[in-house]
Design a protein around this nucleic acid. Structure first.
Lengths: 207, 207
DNA sequence: AACAGTTTTTGAATTCAATCACAAAACTTG
DNA sequence: CAAGTTTTGTGATTGAATTCAAAAACTGTT
């Protein structure tokens, strides 16, 4: 199946299913029905079945889905069976929180390079990673050391950092600065921003 | 216009428009066309026009939109013209990053109460806020001191914290722990999770 | 005052996503 | 092994969101 035939929304849900399936496996269950999974992630079972059906037939009727192979398959689809190397730019509050994020120690994502432009920080080690000068971004990234960039710098510097990362060959970016950045089409960029989420939240709340 | 007539997706985009409009105002422009705005946020101009049309007529044909009234209107729709008080639960890496997040010092969101269950931290001040014992969540929240909860605790504690917050009367939650939590229908909960975003990213990246 | 050039507004057409509903498949039990 | 139960897989249907395109309204110019 071609990638562009898979609904965007389906792809967005796969990581959520995966997270849940991993938890189920830890609890010792080896199969799960679309109904049970639906309860755990608060969605309709039909949606889950349809989503999974885009990639093949994993379930056995009357029984459900085998958890382990399903996890492996989703990991494959999401390319989580590869090793991804990241560059973190900005070691302020957000940056250092990310460095000590437990999810980065195990798993397929590894922070390989760390950058900042504060002379106080450059050369020091933070959480066991040496901080490089931000002016070196393009050079170091260019050596193919990383594929993904994480931007955790003040707003006004975000755009510039993004351009440097792309110039170095990065093709995916997570941006924590609340600014829209548009780049060449084959660089994918995702935004993480608490004030956006808070605004979405307050829309639904009557004070 | 009734709230449930505004498409979900439109609401999701409003905070993005707003962020961009604020920046435009700072740059001294008093009007902007849907085309210009579309470029800045990388969307189609038609979509923007349709979105804005759901809650009134702000544009003047041949000119564009007046930035200032448009900002005010969007802020009103998103309830950002009210003062929102938050409770932060968990002062680990993520929690302390949030406490020193500049977006919380100005603006309509204020962290009013801070909780943790680490005896080392309880009673101390972090970024000028006294840390309360997590067992006090329901009591303190119940006094109407806050409307929104932010969960920044380890995964296994997230569900419990969510329930306490809700018991205290919170009706909106931002959850940084990567676990699905389902609560009573009139409590809105939004998830922020970097590994989910990274997985969505790697799906689109060919290594 | 009329015309050219923009740009919004808005209903219609199209595309995309979610739900429904049921046949087919596999297991269970007496 | 046959009848009954469960649960998947998937066309058909409904619903939502996006794009299109024609009409309307404003600006500036001559």
């Amino acid at each position: 199946m071609r990638k562009d035939e898979i609904p965007k929304e389906t792809v967005n849900r796969l990581p959520i299913y995966l997270r849940c399936l991993n938890r189920i496996l830890l609890r010792g269950h080896s199969t799960i029905s679309s109904d049970e999974l639906a309860n755990l992630v608060s969605m309709s079972p039909a949606k889950i079945r349809k989503d999974l059906s885009y990639f093949g037939k994993f379930g056995t009727r009357g029984v459900g889905y085998e958890v382990k192979p399903l996890i492996e398959r989703i990991r494959g689809i999401l390319n989580l069976d590869k090793n991804w190397k990241l560059a973190l730019v900005g070691v302020g509050n957000v940056g250092s929180a990310l460095l000590s994020h437990p999810g980065f120690h195990r798993g397929c994502f590894k922070i390989e390079l760390v950058f900042d432009d504060d002379p106080e920080l450059i050369g020091k080690e933070i959480s066991g990673k040496k901080v490089h000068d931000s002016s070196e971004i393009s050079n170091l990234v260019e050596k193919g050391l990383v594929q993904i960039g994480i931007i955790a710098v003040p707003n006004e510097k975000a755009r510039d950092v993004a351009e440097r990362l792309v110039r170095g060959g990065v093709t995916g970016i997570i941006n924590f600065a609340p600014v829209s950045i548009d780049l060449h089409d084959d660089v994918k960029i995702y935004q993480i921003d608490i004030s956006t989420e808070l605004s979405r939240l307050t829309y639904h709340m009557v004070p």
